[in-house]
Simulated assay, not measured.
Amino acid sequence: MSAGLRYIYYIFELSYLIFLATYYLNSKKLFFLFSKIITIIYVVQVFLGFLEVIAGFHLPQSGAFVYDTMTSAFQPTGLLFNTNDYAFFLVIFFPLVFWRLTYLRKPYRLISLSVISACATYLVISTYSRLGLLIFGIALLAVLITYSRIWSVFIGAWSTLIVTSLLLFSPALFSKIQDIVVASFTEKGASTSDRMERYNTLWQITKDTNLLGVGAGNAPIKLEQYRIGHAQVQETILAPHNFWLEVITDGGFFGIFPILFFIILLGMSLYYAFVIQKETDKLFLMMPILIIITFIIAAVALSTVVDKRYLWIAIGMAVAAVNITINQRKEHSK
């Protein structure tokens, strides 16, 4: 019962966050103002991340004090709990921050875009998040191409200068980055096997309930019971690490249907907005596309997403951006 109430509360909260973002960010001016707040928070997160990577400093609630690994002491978590959460925070808001910085004055625009791109890249690599690194690479390439080929050349040249400087003046740092990337993709076999075992168990639970589910929030508890039996001292929350399977296991077909309907409706609206888009600010419409793709990947990469408020705020902003584009086009056609 307690797990169900907890889950229902988070469903209400995330729905409310999406509604608030969509309702209040109903113009590009308001969206621009709120994106400035997100950008400030993003810069703070980047600053904290570098403190953690360089000095090993962590906030009291950081997961670095919980996870005892060889690399946790210098892995960034920022204002969040673990490294995966931090990585996907940087990834999902990167297109938004990049778009906001393109409105700076020319003397500062190139520098700020180059610095935030380079810093975010290094910090995402430092988290050892495989999917985070992959989706960030896609997002970085997408915003550079969408923004402008000319500016992409300048930013690419600036980034090349930074990389070249690292090779010449700090080869140890470049070697460290290379080692982290290799380790992220080659030294997580046990983690991958454990996740696949959880996925198979979740699907087995779903089949055992005839696609009706075990009840809101009970998938983690059932997952633990299937692995160690029903003799438990207390209700254990074992992270499913797959939001889609978690929803199906909780509510069966009736649980996943509203989410699929929302995603399909959002996808259709995004396609319509993309077709009617006539403005030069194409990066504004690329932003919700990248946010949605990042969310879909995060739903598999993170332990769970139902309590990750920043993900749902980002989804709300994606919906708001699509609505603004469609409404602007309708006003122009009148």
Rank of each mutant, 00 (worst) to 15 (best):
N82L: 08
N82D: 15
T83W: 04
T83G: 03
T83I: 00
N84Q: 10
N84Y: 03
N84H: 09
N84F: 02
N84S: 13
D85K: 01
D85E: 14
D85I: 06
D85H: 07
Y86W: 06
Y86V: 08
Y86S: 05
Y86P: 07
A87P: 08
A87R: 03
A87I: 09
A87Y: 03
A87H: 04
A87G: 06
A87F: 09
F88R: 04
F88M: 12
F88L: 12
F89T: 03
F89I: 03
F89E: 03
F89G: 02
F89D: 01
L90P: 06
L90R: 00
L90A: 06
L90K: 00
V91C: 01
V91S: 04
V91D: 01
V91Y: 01
V91W: 00
V91R: 01
V91L: 04
V91E: 02
I92L: 04
I92K: 01
I92F: 02
I92N: 04
F93L: 07
F93H: 03
F93T: 06
F94T: 09
F94D: 05
P95K: 01
P95E: 04
P95H: 05
P95D: 06
L96F: 08
L96D: 02
L96T: 13
L96I: 14
V97H: 05
V97E: 04
V97L: 06
V97R: 05
F98E: 00
F98Q: 06
F98G: 03
R100W: 11
R100K: 13
R100T: 13
L101Y: 07
L101M: 12
L101C: 10
L101F: 12
T102S: 12
T102E: 09
T102I: 04
T102Y: 02
Y103L: 05
Y103F: 14
L104I: 10
L104D: 11
L104A: 09
L104N: 05
R105V: 07
R105L: 14
R105C: 07
R105F: 04
R105A: 11
K106D: 12
K106F: 08
K106H: 04
K106E: 15
K106G: 00
K106C: 01
P107A: 08
P107K: 14
P107G: 14
P107V: 11
P107Q: 11
Y108M: 14
Y108E: 09
Y108H: 07
Y108C: 03
R109E: 15
R109L: 11
R109N: 08
R109V: 10
L110K: 06
L110S: 13
L110A: 07
L110Q: 11
L110N: 09
L110I: 15
L110E: 14
L110W: 10
L110R: 08
I111F: 15
I111M: 14
I111C: 11
I111K: 11
S112E: 00
S112Q: 05
S112K: 07
L113D: 12
L113V: 10
L113E: 10
S114I: 14
S114G: 14
S114Y: 09
S114V: 15
V115I: 15
V115A: 14
V115W: 10
I116D: 03
I116P: 00
I116M: 13
